[in-house]
């Protein structure tokens, strides 16, 4: 885990929460798979029912290409967020998305020249690299600033102003035929907890290069730090 995006996210959340008012409520979501194992990288979002969500002006996020992988694999952004796609590897990447929410294609040459894409429609954008088939990333675009990803312990915490929300839960490995979790929750003074058990497929792509593959591996960031 790299602290930098998380830090930014946390900062963003704090800013959002403070903007919404002082009566912040905490939601804790615990996600397990059918075998009871914690599910990481599940996305929890709270879409306000009683008022429109505050827009994400100038919001910015990074989906890095590092070690022939998307980092992070799952990036949650509010609609209208511009996401930068730097290339931290010393090989080219050709990132694309054919998802209806956002279609794009970025040819990323070696060197950290970031291109950026504005995600202006909610939905899940599945990212691939035309050069490296195993790379799989998701940009989950939600219409709310209150969202979180589960950690390795399967727990996600969202602080949002009290009020009624539609709680949406998404995971990449969910069966596409199964309706996504979408539940109305009311956040009050006391922390709210929710537990979900998801039926998941094994991931087809791991976003990790095949074991032993060393071509193109390198830390461009650290190289530039010198």
């Amino acid at each position: 885990m790299h602290p930098s995006p998380l830090l930014r996210l946390a900062l963003g959340l704090i800013l959002t929460a403070s903007a919404a008012g002082s009566r912040a409520s905490a939601l804790r979501v615990d996600v397990h798979d059918a075998s009871g194992a914690p599910v990481a990288d599940a996305v929890v979002s709270l879409v306000p029912l009683d008022h429109p969500a505050p827009p994400a002006h100038g919001a910015h996020a990074i989906m890095d290409q590092r070690n022939l992988s998307f980092v992070p694999q799952v990036l949650v952004v509010q609609t209208g967020t511009e996401v930068g796609f730097p290339n931290s590897d010393n090989v080219r990447h050709h990132v694309y998305s054919f998802s209806p929410a956002k279609r794009f294609e970025l040819k990323l040459y070696a060197g950290n020249h970031a291109s950026s894409v504005l995600f202006d429609h909610p939905g899940v954008d599945t990212l691939g690299c035309n050069i490296h088939d195993w790379m799989l990333g998701y940009v989950v675009v939600v219409d709310t600033p209150w969202f979180a990803k589960t950690g390795n312990d399967g727990i996600a915490r969202v602080d949002a102003p009290a009020g009624r929300y539609t709680l949406q839960l998404w995971d990449a490995r969910q069966d596409p035929g199964t309706p996504p979790v979408s539940e109305t929750v009311t956040l009050g003074a006391s922390p709210t907890e929710r537990q979900y058990t998801l039926a998941l497929h094994p991931a087809e792509l791991t976003n990790r290069p095949p074991p032993g593959l060393e071509i193109g591996l390198g830390d461009r960031t650290s190289a530039h730090a010198h």
Partner: peptide, 17 residues
């Protein structure tokens, strides 16, 4: 009415579409 040897593969982008 005709027999075929069929190859059925998913179109991945990168997940099957």
């Amino acid at each position: 009415g005709r027999p075929y040897q069929l190859v059925i593969v998913p179109v991945r982008a990168p997940t099957p579409i």
